[in-house]
Design a protein around this nucleic acid. Structure first.
Lengths: 171, 171
DNA sequence: ACCTTATTGATAATGATTATCAATAGCAAT
DNA sequence: ATTGCTATTGATAATCATTATCAATAAGGT
């Protein structure tokens, strides 16, 4: 077992000091190096990384980390409502910080059914938020359901696939 | 190999005669018994069945069907835009007719993050459709993206899990 | 009834995720 | 700082949904 003594977490101050992250410690959970490292990567990679993507990036600075720890850390972050787990029918999950401290902000996705490309969009986001907020209140009341998060996704065919007549998954 | 000679598809006329289904034959594809059977089950089961759910139901009337055929048929139906493939992070996919001929009609989902229960809702659907239609037009233009379908999902905690303080997946 | 070729289904292979369990390391108390 | 308790980690094996393969079968036009 090799521990890289040069290992240094490039802390993202904003994130690590955030209210959300501070709640980490409050419930008997421990602020371990692997957890900081995973959260740190998530705060930088807005490309809906998979578990493997995250593992590989964390591994650069922290070679002893195991895949299992990444899985478990992500599960925790999802459970705590810090991270959303997406499933775009690729056979593996993707992850994204819900309230990104300095990134895209609130956004949704267009998903190409042919090449599986995922396009972030923020068009029209204000009108949308107005409606969704109203809808959330109503749903919470009608269904006695505490809403934490929502997603809106449009499925279709992107320009590339229309132009090239792409008929297969680009993978 | 046993063929049940009493096998009889309980055809859902409305569905099998629908425009969508008629397009089946137009592209060189064949209208086989397994395909009719799968579509027939989908037209009855609005409970977001998994591949196994569908397989088991089809199997009752058509014992020689293989799981593979169900997978392949569903892929086709998804490709043709008749069926939507959902992934609620359970490790397996769920399927649903997009334009149900006699059922719920257009609806969306509340997903309990604790017990994984899926609640269909139609509240507020008119206001929603108005916004979504406007949004779709704009997105199609801005991103040169042909939209076929959309989903809106709210994640949170259902009443049962709030009341009982359920802390585990009910499974 | 025949022929062409799409479709089927049994089986094996893949690959993401989960289970297991001894070793390790936070962190609270001393 | 050191100790002790226990949450966490990570190597390995196990699980399970989905995909690949390929010979056998059947749809639909002729």
């Amino acid at each position: 077992m090799i521990i890289n003594s040069n290992y240094k977490i490039m802390t993202n101050k904003k994130l690590l000091n955030s209210k959300l992250f501070q709640n980490f410690a409050d419930t008997g959970h421990r602020l371990t190096a692997p957890r900081k490292a995973v959260l740190n990567i998530l705060s930088k990679d807005m490309n809906h990384p998979t578990v493997e993507d995250i593992y590989l990036q964390v591994h650069k600075g922290y070679p002893s980390i195991g895949m299992m720890t990444v899985y478990r850390t992500l599960d925790l972050l999802v459970e705590w409502g810090i991270v959303h787990k997406f499933d775009f029918s690729e056979g593996k999950a993707r992850y994204e910080l819900i309230d990104h401290p300095e990134g895209l902000g609130h956004h949704h996705h267009l998903i190409c059914q042919k090449c599986k490309k995922i396009i972030n969009y923020t068009d029209f986001i204000n009108e949308e938020i107005k409606l969704i907020t109203k809808l959330e209140k109503r749903l919470e009341k009608n269904h006695k359901f505490k809403i934490n998060n929502h997603i809106i996704e449009f499925y279709g065919v992107c320009d590339d696939c229309t132009v090239t007549g792409n008929n297969k998954s680009i993978n």
